[in-house]
Amino acid sequence: MRYQDLMNLKDEITLEDIKEYGQNSVEIIINFYASPKANPVRRRIIFDTYVSYTVLNESYTYNVDGEVYDGNLCRIYSESHYLEYIKNITLTEDVHPETQMIHYELVCEDHIVDVISLEEPDVI
């Protein structure tokens, strides 16, 4: 499964766990329902490398004008204030000028998880 496969999810996603997974890697475990009467589906999303990640209480977030993304609850941003912020405060573009940073976002029931990475995550 790829992250893009999760981008069609429209029902509730819950964050089960998030933790450092090895050196400079992060593992995010989510649960969702494939259908209303089904058992929850558990997926591990593993970023082997990341530039930054944040977890926000969803009660204190809002949609920001001017941001552009694809997906529903699992998103990839092409333009975001968070991505611009990370570009401005890190040396990532100097160290990896040939690689574009990608902003991934998981809109969970109680949390918003944002990850900036140079690579697509593994979804298991």
Rank of each mutant, 00 (worst) to 15 (best):
S117L: 01
V123M: 01
L118T: 03
V41F: 11
I89L: 11
S117M: 03
L106E: 06
E98L: 14
M7V: 06
Q4E: 15
V55S: 00
T99C: 12
H96S: 03
Q100L: 10
K19M: 08
R75W: 04
P97Q: 06
T54D: 06
Y104V: 13
N57S: 14
K10M: 14
I76S: 06
N88E: 09
I28G: 00
V64N: 06
L73F: 09
I86T: 06
M7R: 05
I124Q: 13
A34T: 05
I112L: 12
K87I: 14
N24E: 06
D11G: 06
V41W: 03
E12W: 13
L91H: 11
K37C: 04
E84K: 12
N31G: 09
V64E: 05
I30F: 08
Y53R: 00
I76K: 05
Y60N: 08
S52D: 10
P121L: 14
S117C: 04
E105G: 07
N88P: 08
Y85S: 13
Y3P: 01
A38E: 14
I102Q: 05
S25K: 06
E93W: 06
T92W: 02
Y3Q: 05
Y77V: 03
F47L: 10
Y85M: 14
E67M: 11
E93D: 07
T14Q: 06
S52V: 14
H111T: 07
G22Y: 09
Q100V: 07
L56P: 06
I89E: 07
T14K: 07
K19R: 11
E58L: 09
G22T: 11
Q4G: 15
E27G: 13
K37S: 04
E84D: 10
L15W: 05
V26S: 03
T90P: 00
Y104P: 03
F32W: 13
T49P: 02
V107H: 08
Y77R: 09
T54L: 12
I18P: 03
I30M: 09
V55D: 00
H96M: 06
